[in-house]
Design a protein around this nucleic acid. Structure first.
Length: 670
RNA sequence: GGCGGUGUAGCUCAGCUGGUCAGAGCAUGCGGCUCAUAUCCGCAGUGUCCGGGGUUCAAGUCCCUGCACCGCCA
């Protein structure tokens, strides 16, 4: 038997629900695996929940449960979402497993034996109140570059500058508000630079990664591969580093190992040979990942596998992000749609079809345009593909008691035409250019429709029933061909057609047969409904509601109070009533709105980091509170002449302070 | 700020190593059919191939530059 194929998609993080962006990747992977299986390859799809790391540890702590308790419901939820989208993992496991611990430790030890793990002290912020080192995302302070307040420890969302948390002038702990101290800790580093030649060779082999990805990776290598910190101090949720009391593997060390661990679990459950996958240079391993995690999968991961003697990936397939209606998914616009919200309103087959029709195998972002979605599903899937079955099957049942005749010689050219297209479909699937495959399949459905139209069996049946029967026979064969070809994308549709036509489960090669003759077909059943546009709207509305209802965010600990000040100190802060005259987005800044406000005797321009919570129109005419005597601040996009008062834990959930009754602009607030 | 990607008809996109490459589908308009629980089939127009330079006998296709959008920066 040929060497096995193993395909993975990136592991969903077990601290939240999956959304349609995740689903894009899983559907893409699922289509590939189904195609491989249909063409007789011994392929499996492995996936798992990614369960470790600081965010889950902290969220569990905030929720007052253990990390294991915290991740458990997501494990159930994710599997249900997968199943309901017909995403058929052969095994869906978890990184919080003994198998994963074993392989993580094994890889670590092998790398250490070879001298590619070194230790080095690292000085970083430590919160004495919480008793923990603070990752960059758990520190906030004022950006050293543009002086924007309340920025994360690694990047300023106002000006985009990246820096180290120690560059923040007033760093404080996100969890408790306390000022952290510097503390030293010894960390383990993976000296990946030792693998530079190996990596150049690996990714230099054609087909490993898409060309644009390779260029991207080469710039990393050319800049010099830096040692990778693979340890974290406790408290942490993960695997302890052997021989250490309070140090753990960084989540990115054990997450991809989950691919291996899941395979181990799968082999244990099914009696398959684990080594045939992970200790077999003939095995084909594909990783499907989003472009944000390219470097983990195409640099660290192959190096780790190589160092520890596991099978190397044959291909890392990188895809872009999902946008909705041309824009980044947005909670306020209702385009941040979870898998479940979609399923509550629409048929999963629509999305599988739409994604397939747009996936081109490149790293481009894919846009889910909801109007196009409706149109494309109706015009192609329903009107062309399903309608062919709908027009011929009831016809055969009505006029010929469900029996097919024989194919007429005059359809030979059409059969040849269809057969000539099959290699292109196959090749498009192999290259992950599902859009071309779908295009070709629709064209084949059109051939079936056109012949049926031109031959007009509804007329022919009056004079020459056998001739009409032959026309129908060809159309039914087209139905089978189309169903076989679209089966990786629409397994449910294909199964329904198989049932109607009374044929065995279709394989890819069945598409070429055209030998369904003198055969009795079954009754017609509806295959797929047209998209109900109202359901689209309902889904978008529900996505907005989810946001409002989202109680999920556990109450953040209340920030510590600032030192006491006297009245004089307060009165030096000049707060004024201001009316918002203009509000607009700032090009190049995701978080900022540029506001023009009236503060009585003058107007001011203020940049406020509230774009994620407010659309410009939301603020027009509103009366807000402005710090009017704040030193003007030079920002990348202009000068900000004041500051807006608002409350919120971060930039995505901010409420601007307003007045319950109208006030005159310029009035002072005391 | 550095790096990378993208920019082709109203929309979604094909156009590989430069020479019928200015295309397809949808949308639009017109015509035909009625088997279709999902309407299909045919015909027709539309484009400074993002702007500006350059290389070449020849450039969406190569080079430089500008602009816009997207992403990455361990």
């Amino acid at each position: 038997m040929a060497a096995p194929v193993l395909v993975t998609s990136a592991l969903p993080y077990a601290n939240g629900s999956i959304h349609l962006g995740h689903v894009l990747e899983y559907i893409q992977t699922d289509i590939l695996v189904r195609f491989l299986k249909m063409t007789g390859q011994d392929a499996v799809y492995m996936c798992a929940d990614d369960t470790h790391g600081t965010p889950i540890e902290v969220n569990a702590w905030r929720a007052g449960v253990t990390p294991e308790e915290y991740i458990a419901p997501y494990y159930v939820e994710h599997q249900r979402d997968f199943a309901d989208f017909s995403i058929a993992c052969d095994c869906f496991y978890t990184t919080n497993s003994p198998e994963n611990q074993h392989h993580s430790e094994y890889i670590f030890e092998r790398l250490r034996e070879q001298g590619h793990i070194v230790t080095r002290p690292v000085t970083q912020y430590y919160c004495e109140q919480d008793g923990r080192f603070l990752p960059d995302r758990f520190i906030r302070g004022t950006c050293p570059h543009c002086k924007a307040a309340e920025q994360y420890g690694d990047v300023c969302e106002a000006c985009g500058t990246t820096y180290s948390p120690t560059d923040l002038s007033d760093a404080h702990c996100v969890l408790c508000g306390a000022t952290p101290v510097m503390r030293e800790s010894v960390h383990y580093f993976f000296t990946i630079s030792a693998y530079e030649d190996f990596l150049r060779d690996w990714m230099g082999t054609p087909g490993r990664v898409q060309p644009e990805v390779r260029r991207f990776l080469e710039t990393w290598i050319n800049e010099g591969l830096r040692d990778w910190d693979v340890s974290r101090d406790g408290p942490y949720f993960g695997f302890k580093i052997p021989g250490e009391d309070n140090k753990y593997f960084y989540v990115w060390l054990d997450a991809p190992v989950g691919y291996i661990a899941t395979t181990q679990k799968f082999c244990g459950d099914t009696g398959r040979d684990f080594d045939a996958y992970w200790h077999n240079p003939e095995a084909t391993i594909y990783h499907v990942v989003g472009k944000d995690i390219t470097y983990f999968h195409a640099l660290y991961w192959p190096a780790m596998l190589h160092g520890a003697g596991y099978t190397l990936p044959r291909k890392v397939l990188v895809h872009g992000f999902l946008t909705v209606n041309g824009e980044k998914m947005s909670k306020t616009r209702g385009t941040f749609i979870t898998a479940r919200t979609y399923l509550d309103h629409l048929d999963p087959q629509y999305l599988r079809y739409y994604y397939a029709a747009k996936l081109n195998g490149r790293v481009d972002d894919l846009d889910l345009n909801l109007e196009e979605f409706v149109h494309r599903v109706d015009a192609e899937l329903v009107n062309k593909i399903a309608n062919l079955v709908s027009r011929v099957v009831p016809f055969v049942n009505r006029h010929f008691e469900g029996r097919l005749g024989r194919l007429d010689d005059n359809v030979k050219p059409l059969v040849n035409d269809v057969r000539a297209r099959l290699p292109r479909v196959r090749e498009s699937y192999e290259r992950m250019e599902f859009n071309r495959a779908v295009q070709e399949i629709v064209a084949i459905a059109e051939i079936g429709n056109k012949n049926f139209q031109d031959a007009a069996p509804w007329e022919l049946v009056k004079q020459n029933p056998p001739a009409a029967q032959a026309v129908c026979t060809f159309a039914v064969n087209c139905c089978r061909t189309v169903a076989a070809l679209i089966k990786p994308v629409l397994p449910q549709y294909a199964a329904d057609v198989e049932a109607i036509l009374h044929v065995e489960p279709l394989l890819f090669d069945d598409a070429a047969r055209f030998d369904l003759e003198e055969h009795e077909i079954g009754a017609f059943t509806r295959l797929i409904e047209r998209v109900d546009a109202r359901q689209i709207n309902a889904m978008v509305e529900a996505s907005k509601e989810n946001l409002d209802a989202a109680p999920a965010r556990p109450a953040a600990p209340v920030e510590a109070l600032e030192p006491e000040i006297d009245l004089d100190a307060f009165s030096r802060v000049d707060l004024r009533v201001a009316t918002v005259l203009q509000a607009e987005t700032v090009e190049g800044a995701d978080r900022l709105l540029r506001l023009r406000v009236d503060i009585g005797n003058e107007q001011r321009t203020i940049f406020a980091g509230i774009r994620q919570s407010y659309a410009p129109g939301d603020l027009l005419g509103k009366q807000v509170i402005v710090v009017a005597n704040l030193q003007p601040r030079n920002m990348r996009f202009g000068v900000s002449e004041g500051m807006l008062l608002a409350a919120g834990p971060d930039g995505t959930d901010v409420v601007v302070a307003e007045f319950a009754q109208p006030r005159q602009p310029g009035q002072r607030i005391r």
